[in-house]
Design a protein around this nucleic acid. Structure first.
Lengths: 200, 200
DNA sequence: CAACAAATGTTGGTTTAGCAACACAGGATG
DNA sequence: CATCCTGTGTTGCTAAACCAACATTTGTTG
């Protein structure tokens, strides 16, 4: 069945599924939730679930990516150019995302988080690309280096936010300011520190 | 289309319609609510409304009767025999029903109330009949008188509760106790009072 | 290990909801 | 008065949800 995404029934069914899943995630571990549980709570047929989602893992992915997009949108990041402030806001956005997930789910396993990791970083990269690319005069020339830079920055952002989530020794804002500078300078700072100590 | 009342879609559609209607009744006057308003808020198609309800008046009737039945059920009336306590509880139940309606609707016109009046009294009569009939040894013999008695009692109950709703000079319980006695004695009390004053 | 129970995906046929279009009625506006 | 607008109620067709049934997989219990 190829469903029309604008059909009110499709919209409602998907929403009922999401609502039920969110409710269950507030009560239980992801792995313990069955498709049957979801569809029964959503008052839809199990076959209808499979008409819209491949399995519960795909539902998780879609939903968590939506959460992330909403978090990004809520942080109102200036998309006219890529600056140090953009970097700071992105870091804080990923921190918000982690906090949202922690708050919305009773028990979120690291396996679930790692299922989402790549997807979130990809989304981060796409977001950054959307800001940065139009700012470059000759996109065809710098595209190779830009792609790599975006990947580096995306993974860096995710990494510091994840570290913060495990060990909140700084405030979100402090983390953002400090980390943004470090990400900006890349390995330079590390190289300087190391050479000063005579390691290199 | 003859819908199967047990189909989950039918159940959900009807519930969506009811929820939307209740919400609108909390905000607006019944007459100002259109079928279009209801279906838009319920996120269903207008044709679907007509598949389940003749018009908005029928929806009102169904819903208010449900409210009344719920009120009756909540009052947990002993249905083993018909006693003075039964009478008192029925009076209080109708009072509860009036209070519920007043609370659930922004503005409830007297025309709407009178639309429901007969239906509620019929339901009252059916309820009383359900209690009283099994208690009679020879139902075929007393059926005529019993039918009339039930009608009299039903209208009496509704009447005193309606009066109380307009002018709450007594508590609900006081009204029930006093009125139950009066309904029990029927016109006897009035006749005595009148004769004592020499009117008859 | 075998047997059983429960969850997963999938399928074909049935039923209901959605939709667009229509005729009609009532009320407002020029 | 004619015209427009909005809501009502109906209809035939399309598309989505339901359902029962099935083969498979997974897990657990004696």
């Amino acid at each position: 069945m190829i469903a029309n995404e604008n059909d009110p029934r499709v919209i409602r069914s998907k929403q009922l599924i999401k609502d039920a899943f969110i409710k269950l995630m507030m009560e239980r571990d992801f792995e313990s939730i069955t498709v049957k549980d979801i569809t029964e709570l959503a008052t839809i047929n199990r076959a209808t679930f499979y008409a819209h989602y491949v399995d519960k893992y795909m539902l998780l992915e879609v939903l968590f990516l939506e959460f992330f997009d909403q978090t990004l949108a809520r942080n109102k990041i200036d998309d006219s150019s890529f600056s140090i402030e953009t970097l700071e806001k992105l870091i804080m956005a990923v921190c918000d995302y982690f906090m949202f997930i922690k708050n919305a789910c009773r028990k979120i396993s690291s396996s679930v988080m790692s299922l989402m990791e790549e997807k979130i970083i990809s989304r981060l990269a796409a977001f950054i690309a959307g800001i940065a690319k139009p700012c470059v005069a000759e996109p065809e020339h710098f595209s190779e280096e830009m792609e790599l830079s975006i990947i580096i920055v995306s993974w860096s952002i995710y990494g510091v936010a994840l570290k913060w989530n495990n060990n909140k020794s700084l405030s979100k804002e402090e983390l953002a300011v400090k980390s943004a500078k470090l990400i900006q300078n890349g390995a330079n700072g590390l190289l300087l520190l190391s050479s000063a100590k005579g390691v290199l």
